[in-house]
Write a protein that binds this DNA or RNA. Structure first.
Lengths: 128, 128, 128, 128
DNA sequence: GTGGTCTAGACCACT
DNA sequence: GTGGTCTAGACCACC
């Protein structure tokens, strides 16, 4: 079950997006699988359906899922040719750069950073 | 000279904070050195002095600089005893976790991530 | 109701911060409880919303409350792990030192000081 | 020799006031003793004479010293009948109250507070 | 409705 | 001239 923190600084719909992406990565949600409907997920998480709707729309924009009128929303394949755009990469790198300034400022050693990444990578990718 | 993008998702005052932190890390701004005054920096960047003020105040909260009424704002020493708190570390790790989900989703290989970090580390820490 | 004195040497936004901290300590505001919105509190106290906003932001920095866009501001739990840092303690002690010089100069006996502290402690901590 | 910290949030003239009061309390400066002249003290501390002047004027207002034209400034007796006014006491108590809110919030135990006071009292009063 | 950011312009305290 | 506070009013993102 998805974990949401209403007191998180990140808006709820972004938390949902992140969670679903994570489940796809981890193979909990498989390509072609049907996602819960907007209304049922909203009920399960006891939040506003509009918020779920916004998350699903954004996931469709990012080509993670596909919504079919009258049928539901489904996980898309991660197509290898859907390789990241130059823009995506630039954005990611920029975000990393900003994070590193903070980390360096707080004197986190490089070794620790590598360790954190390895821990997380194992969880997300387990075998990919 | 500092580069600001008013259309960036990050608010201007945070861009300023990041820029100054980076300059401190890189040794462009040295401990004790005087920062440009609120008003002159505002004029140089053609933004409102209050925005600069907000950035400087936050930098003072984070103990990066110190502002003295009537005198100006100055870079503080990075005291080794000012080690990061448990909460700081938790926050950093959480941010990293979210970034990694994105990166994995876009299929950035671990190797590339390490490379990006090394590049940036060299720029920020040059030998530390 | 909160009491504010515009002619106080302490800025208004700091008076608000102190008041809210006190109410949290005294259990008037409970963890998770919603604070009045920036706008309504501003109207109630007949001051500018930006001033409230400044106070709330600082309270969020100090991890007393948490503000969520579109939802409101809420009292956080005081986590026992969020122990004070060395710097916090240093700052507190320095402030106390300066206060004591004044008190000694005005010949307040130690006994009276202890009495004042006990009175206040009872109000703030009521049994903790 | 007096210790001044130009990077302290407290204005320099207040630091001077506090220092002189402390020296009077500790018996380093005795009643009737001549203080250094504005100009020589300014030179010794390498700060602006106006700042010293402001401090001395305030000390005269608070009846700690007395300035005689053409002769210099001198430490006054702490006269027992110069007992603190009701106003002074109210102000002191108010300041203490605010400090205690912070201390309680940061979970400093009462015992620790007493300890801090005792340490400081010994330094300031040594035998009074 | 909520909080967050930014501008414009004012006044104050300190050096 | 310096930073700090406050007001007034605007626009944005989120729920």
């Amino acid at each position: 079950m998805m974990h949401l923190d209403p007191n998180h600084p990140k808006p709820i719909y972004e938390q949902i997006i992140l969670n679903i992406k994570k489940e796809v990565l981890q193979g909990i949600l498989l390509p072609g699988e049907k996602l819960p409907s907007v209304r049922t997920l909203a009920k399960d998480l006891s939040i506003n359906p509009n918020t779920i709707s916004k998350a699903y729309k954004e996931l469709e924009n990012q080509e993670v899922i596909i919504s079919v009128k009258g049928k539901g929303s489904f996980v898309r394949n991660i197509e290898p040719e859907n390789t990241r755009s130059v823009q995506d990469e630039k954005k990611l790198k920029q975000q990393l750069r900003e994070w590193l300034v903070e980390a360096h400022y707080l004197q986190v050693p490089l070794k620790t950073i590598y360790q954190w990444i390895d821990e997380e990578a194992q969880e997300n990718l387990h075998g990919n």
